[in-house]
């Protein structure tokens, strides 16, 4: 009998060591497809699991951190409030890599305020919105990202316009914004890995069909609709800092974005000639896509120069969480000095 040893990544861990508990979501749920790509991305990046913290709010999507990275601490918080928890975790220990998973209800409705402020602060983390346009756990009510005119399973037509979380994030100055589709694993994993190299908030809005409540004819978040309508802005490649490879390409056909850790994003252009470093173009493109009912995917915007939250906080290299008393408790002479000033 031949036993084959499973392959390992650059830090000697197998893919299995990046997995979590078995999913309890519906068979075929888009979220499980995203979970698989998260596992793949972290495995391929060779991230140390114990240096990752997984966070979420409430909803089907927010359950998923239990299904990946078993060896990372997880924090399934309260509805719509994952951003504040992530901000606190980041402040306490900026050496951790944070990945947050949220849904369209969790982010675009109850948590919209916290989402905006997380982006505004540029808290370093990957923020994934598993976007299916409905509330799954409460059985199919529309969410705030459901498109105008989209039909619910019950036949009800959505009469309110959607909130575009990518457009909003860019408007708020988010330094990494991507949109993808749970049925496009190749693009999604590249985006996830690029987000993992980004120093700042990386928002990835992933259309993730709800097979139970929003996968029917007339829904704009259904597998069939998304597959037919997906229009990638570019072909996305990610080259990590630890395996630099050069490729030949026609001048002008490729855009390369260097990331702060030395990794590179390579974007093979389509006829659109889209430049994701241009904020105005990004906003304009999203607006036009809405008007034309296009489903654009890819890296919508990136700015590697923006200061992230931990830089602004001006903390030292060691995490605040484990600073010793010698550093956190000022000397007796300090108290004496303060007391003298109050006499």
């Amino acid at each position: 009998m031949v036993t084959s040893t499973p392959p390992t990544n650059r830090i000697g861990l197998t893919m299995a060591e990046y997995k979590g508990a078995p999913s309890t979501l519906c068979d075929g749920c888009g979220h499980d497809a995203i979970t698989a790509q998260i596992i793949k991305a972290f495995y391929e990046l060779g991230k140390e699991p114990h240096m990752v913290a997984k966070l979420s709010g409430i909803g089907c999507s927010s359950k998923t951190p239990a299904y990946f990275l078993n060896r990372s601490h997880g924090f399934n918080s309260v509805h719509g409030r994952m951003p504040s928890v992530a901000t606190g975790v980041s402040a306490a220990n900026h050496t951790l890599s944070l990945i947050g998973v949220s849904g369209d209800g969790d982010t675009a409705s109850i948590g919209l305020g916290q989402f905006c402020h997380l982006v505004r602060r540029n808290v370093p983390m990957i923020y994934i919105v598993e976007n299916n346009g409905v509330y799954g756990l409460t059985k199919g009510q529309f969410s705030a990202t459901a498109d105008l005119g989209s039909k619910a399973k019950s036949g009800v037509i959505n009469e309110l316009p959607p909130i575009d979380l990518c457009g909003l994030a860019i408007e708020l100055g988010c330094s990494f914004v991507g949109r993808s589709f749970a049925g496009d694993p190749k693009q999604l994993v590249a985006l996830l890995k690029a987000a993992g190299s980004h120093k700042g908030t990386a928002v990835i809005d992933v259309i993730s069909p709800c097979v139970t409540f929003n996968n029917h004819e007339g829904s704009t978040k259904a597998y069939k609709y998304a597959k037919e309508m997906e229009t990638p802005l570019h072909e996305l490649g990610y080259i990590p800092f630890f395996e630099q490879i050069s490729v030949d390409y026609e001048p002008g056909s490729m855009q390369e974005v260097e990331m702060h850790d030395g990794s590179k994003i390579r974007l093979k252009k389509t006829e659109r000639n889209y430049d994701p470093t241009n904020q105005t173009q990004a906003i304009l493109t999203i607006k036009e896509a809405h008007d034309k009912k296009e489903f654009l995917t890819g890296l919508l915007y990136i700015n590697e120069d923006k200061e992230d939250f931990s830089t602004i906080m001006n903390v030292g290299d060691a995490p605040l969480a484990t600073l010793p008393q010698e550093i956190t408790r000022p000397a007796k002479s300090v108290l004496e000095e303060i007391m003298a000033g109050l006499k």
Partner: peptide, 26 residues
């Protein structure tokens, strides 16, 4: 700095941040 001060957007966020930080060991 051996500290971080965050003026939150509201009290919900303030305690969320405090709990996140406490959980992570601050």
């Amino acid at each position: 700095a051996s500290f971080a001060v965050i003026q939150a957007e509201d009290e919900l966020a303030a305690i969320g941040m405090a709990l996140g930080a406490g959980w992570a060991g601050a």
